[in-house]
Simulated scan of single mutants.
Amino acid sequence: MTAALMGTLAWADRTDGRLSADEKIALARNLASLRAEMVFDEARYRLGLLRPAKIELDTLTPPDTKLVRDADEFARSVYPDVLWAHCLRTYYFGAQVAAFDGIKFDREVFYAAAICHDAGINEGVAGPVAACCFAHSGGRLTCETLSGKGHGESAVRVGDAISTHMNLVVPPDQYPSESTLVAVGATCDIFGTYVRRIELTTLAATVERAPRTGLFEAFGPFLTQPHLEDSRTALLVQMGAFDSNGTHPIESVLAS
């Protein structure tokens, strides 16, 4: 169903993760859409029109299954605690926004994709980011690893969600909801998008469980090195997507 869609494993296998001219325009629109969404959510919040419900984090605990355990073990093996914590927040933020927006998803598949979505940052196992799109290489590596542990079609769904997350916006009417939510959770943690859709004490509990300390220091070297020409990451860096503009929205909300 999603084979021809930008970001999927099949798309990246065919294109080597390089964007066409039309796809570059689509990615630029996605970035603009994220920024507009933040402004719109902030306006709705200030008008009292956006009031998410409190969620107890323990109600979002992923199921204790072999897929979840295998994914967690793999993630722990390929990046340090600071990136593992980012991936854990990606899961919780995605699940919290899903609750607000009424998005149904497979918690097992979503957790596996969220916790492994930055596997491609580890060039020692996924290959140099100057030669391959890190989202594609990480998705492919995770898919192969989980397939080797007997997870079959679930491994493909996990790999697709990882490969697709660098689209930034992954519409749930076009992609599986698990792919949508990896992008939602990751962009929430990196850019602060959707943070107003998370109730304040729930947000604080998430950050307490998975602290954000050292996140951008960990990503700094990765973002400043050469990336595959015409890849999504290369284009986003060129557009200044990751440039800091003062206090991060999550910290601003927590301090309010």
Rank of each mutant, 00 (worst) to 15 (best):
241 A>Y: 08
144 E>Q: 13
2 T>R: 00
155 A>S: 12
20 S>Y: 10
110 F>H: 03
142 T>V: 11
203 L>Y: 07
27 L>C: 02
184 V>D: 05
97 V>A: 06
218 A>V: 07
64 D>Y: 04
213 T>S: 13
22 D>Y: 11
25 I>A: 15
241 A>T: 12
27 L>P: 09
60 L>M: 13
14 R>N: 12
130 A>V: 15
143 C>G: 02
12 A>W: 02
26 A>G: 06
242 F>Q: 09
60 L>P: 05
209 R>Y: 04
79 Y>S: 07
137 S>K: 04
89 R>T: 06
80 P>A: 14
62 P>V: 06
21 A>K: 15
38 M>G: 08
206 T>Q: 08
247 T>E: 14
40 F>H: 13
117 H>D: 07
29 R>L: 10
109 V>I: 15
244 S>M: 00
256 S>V: 14
56 E>C: 01
35 R>H: 10
25 I>H: 13
162 I>A: 08
121 I>V: 14
135 A>V: 09
5 L>F: 07
194 Y>A: 09
144 E>N: 10
206 T>P: 02
75 A>Q: 02
245 N>H: 13
199 E>A: 11
61 T>P: 05
219 F>R: 10
202 T>S: 14
3 A>F: 00
30 N>R: 08
111 Y>V: 10
76 R>I: 09
162 I>V: 13
246 G>R: 08
190 I>R: 07
256 S>F: 03
169 V>M: 09
176 P>Q: 10
82 V>E: 07
138 G>V: 10
207 V>C: 14
153 E>I: 13
252 S>R: 13
55 I>N: 06
90 T>F: 01
8 T>L: 09
245 N>Q: 12
91 Y>M: 10
30 N>A: 15
87 C>L: 05
15 T>L: 01
129 V>M: 03
54 K>D: 02
2 T>D: 00
204 A>W: 03
132 C>V: 15
52 P>H: 00
239 M>L: 14
183 A>N: 09
227 H>Y: 01
67 L>T: 04
53 A>F: 04
139 G>N: 01
172 P>C: 01
43 A>F: 05
135 A>D: 11
197 R>S: 01
103 I>M: 05
103 I>D: 02
65 T>C: 07
229 E>M: 11
196 R>S: 03
44 R>F: 01
238 Q>C: 03
